[in-house]
Each structure stands twice: as C-alpha cells, then as structure tokens.
Design a protein around this nucleic acid. Structure first.
Lengths: 210, 210
DNA sequence: TCGGAAGCGGAATTACGCTTCCTCTTAGCG
DNA sequence: CGCTAAGAGGAAGCGTAATTCCGCTTCCGA
C-alpha cells in the first residue's frame, strides 16, 4: 500500500504516475482483460516495479476505478450548479454517460462487474452516490422528474445504458438512443403510474425498494 | 458435430441429454465461468464423454444459448396470440425477462457477451428477432407504443434490464422496477418526442439508427 | 562523495482450466 | 452368442497470466 508514510522517492512517484496512465489507457481499451505485462511494458517499466506499486491486479484496478468515481462525483457536483433542477439532472446523467463512453474500466466499474473488489472503492462510490442524491432530490422537489425517482433508479438506468455502450462494438448511436428513451421514462410529463400487469402476475410489493 | 448422420447410440443420446441438463444448470448458476470438469462431474460422466459430444466449451455454450433463443422465440410467438397489441407487446417483454431471471447463461447471451461465439447461434437469434419484430410492428400499428419503436430498441431496453438482473446479487425487485420504468418510456401515453439537449450537445443524427 | 535503503527488472514459478490421447467398455447387428 | 465400431473415462499435456524472487541500480541525506 504505497500510501502516505515516507514521502516516496522522486523516481518512484514518477513511475507510479506512469503506471496509472498506462493502466488507464489499457483498462479503458480492454477492460479487466488488460494484462499486467502489457501494462508494465506500456509504462516502460518492469513487472517488479508494477508490483511494487500495486500488490495485485485487483489493487491496480481498484485504484483506477476509485479515481474514476472521484471524477464522476466531481462532474455531478458541477452539474448541480445549473439553476434549472430538471436540466441539472439531465446534464448529470448525460455527462456521466458521455464520460464513460470509450472507457471500459469505468463502464465495467459502473456496471458492477464482480471482477472488481468493491470493498476497495467503497468510499469513492459513496461520495459519488451522495452527489447524485443531491441532484435527484432537487429535481424531484421541483417536480421535474417522476416523484418516486431514487438514487437507486439512477444507478439502475445508467447501468442499463452502460450495458448498451459496453456490448456494442459499433458507434455510439445506440446508447444515445437508449439514453433518450430513459429520459422519457423519467421526466415528469411522462406517465408516472404503471398500468396493471398483464401476463406473468407481478408479485406484490415488487415495485419499490431501498 | 453430433448432428444427424448415423442415429446415435442409445446410451450416447442419454448422455448427451445429461450433459445438456448439467450444463444448463451450471451455466445458469455461474455463467460462462462454469467449468468443464464440474459439468462432466455433475452429469456423472468423464471429460472424454463430454468432449465427444461437444468439441469445445464454446460449442457447449452455443448449444445451450441456441436452445434458449429457441425457447424465447416460442414464448414471444405465444404472446403474439394475445388480442390486444399493446398487451401482447408487454407480455412478450415481461415473459422474456421473467424467463431470463435466474439463468445466467441466458442473461449473458442476451446481453451480448463476447465470451460467446455468436456465429454459432446466428440462426436461432434471427428466429427470435423475427418473432419480436412481429409483435412490435403490430403494437406500433395499433398506436399502443411510441411510433418510432424498433426491434433494436427492444434489444437495447431488454439488455438494460438484463444488466440490472445480472449484476444484482440481491432479489429481483430491482429489475422489476427497471422494467416498469422501461415500459413507461415505451407505452404510448408517454411523451414521444424528446426535449432539446442540455449539456453535451447531442450530435446530429444521433436519434435513430438501423 | 558515500552508504545503504528504496526502487527496479524480468526470468522463473505457480495456478488453473481447457483439451487431447489412449485404453477399456458396451450397444447392437448378423 | 460373437464381433466391432461407437462410446466412455480420466490422467497427462498445454497455454496463459498473475505473482514472486532476488541480484542489480539509483536516489538522497549526512
């Protein structure tokens, strides 16, 4: 755990940066499948060095994901500065997805893959969730999105779009379309109640959670 | 390729069944991660036998997925018998997801994982898509779902819900909620047009595809 | 300028699954 | 009933990546 004990030698700090950069690039490209050896090579360093800085692939991945969560929280907080609560919400969701576009690490992270040890990014994730809660509460209070919308919904819906993004080798048209559909289901002019179940009887109490 | 040449010895047919059953169970449970050895053991057979019937893990997985697609196509066709086009559509989507619940093979398959050689299930997939097209066309014609809805949308939206299902260890409340949100974005009482983009300028022509 | 702790490199080790190979067994026709 | 090709079993072989090890090099405080 290269944390904050002794200040970290100058070259070491430099190399750590390099690793993060290389890992960011390769994870973004190949997701969890990126190989340690390639990352080391890409950073112009040896395996030993890589493992000195991050004791395992999991640790490296977690570091990257944590960084991304931080960035996203920041982004959401920025959106919060938009005056109109409805537009702020929309901007947050849009910005979030836009940022994830082309970054497999983040897509995976946000989708909740079990290739990641979530306990290592608890904190950053919570920070992000907090930022989102703020924006949603405001939009709900202003009546700009359906009244029953929660942070969990944001996660669910965003993950849905992410999955379109992730599994579609093709361009980005698909996920943008998906996003539009999602926004239509969430904005207030849209219907708020659901019609009665049709074929498989929806078990009672299946509606809300958390 | 144990296809249809010589009739296949009685015990062989029996064993093939067993393998399919075991694989179905284990893939459902562990997805692509299920191990060949476990599958063989679970079927009460040796590795050699397993490989006699399916030349590779890919082949086995493809066989399972193909079977699932067939089943889904059948299910959708059944839904098509519902008189009300809107309800038929809803039943198809509901039934589809209900069937995928708890079956990781199918979830993965439908999500489009690249752990699967799609060329091996082309046919079954096309069959399924065809069935879906029928139901959507009817619902659109009847004005019960947004006019611009396509088969691609069905795939996109269903995959979104699937991702909620797949990545949520917890119960099934989340994906059912997601499904309701999706239905709200698709049924006709909901808004059909999208409002103007807010923050990241939506590139022109990002709306429709295929 | 020196000493030695911190850092680096990268080959060797390990672990883990899929796949192959070869021998033994059995269904089922004549 | 006897033969033989189809089928079964499962241990060994392989490839792939993560991780470890340890001798060499470089920073940096005195």
């Amino acid at each position: 755990m290269p944390d904050n004990q002794r200040p970290l030698r100058a070259d070491a700090r430099r190399n750590r940066e390099r690793i993060m950069a290389a890992a960011g690039e390769l994870f973004a490209q190949h997701g969890h499948g990126a190989q340690m050896e390639d990352i080391a090579a890409h950073a112009g360093l040896g395996m030993g060095t890589l493992y000195r800085h991050f004791p395992s692939k999991q640790a490296l991945l977690a570091a990257m994901v944590g960084e991304r969560f931080r960035g996203m929280a920041e982004l959401v907080r920025t959106a919060e500065r938009i005056a109109d609560p409805g537009k702020a919400f929309e901007a947050a969701l849009r910005g979030y997805l836009e940022a994830a576009d082309g970054d497999a690490t983040f897509q995976l992270a946000l989708m909740g893959t079990d290739d990641l040890r979530w306990d290592l990014v608890q904190e950053q994730k919570a920070e992000f969730a907090e930022a989102v809660r703020g924006i949603i509460d405001r939009a709900v209070a202003a009546g700009r999105v359906r009244a029953d919308l929660t942070v969990a919904d944001f996660t669910i819906l965003a993950r849905g779009v992410l999955s379109t993004m992730y599994f579609n080798a093709g361009g980005n048209a698909d996920w943008r379309r998906h996003l539009e559909l999602v926004l239509d289901s969430v904005r207030v002019p849209a219907a708020t109640s659901t019609t009665a179940p049709v074929s498989p009887p929806a078990r009672p109490g299946a509606g809300r959670r958390r």
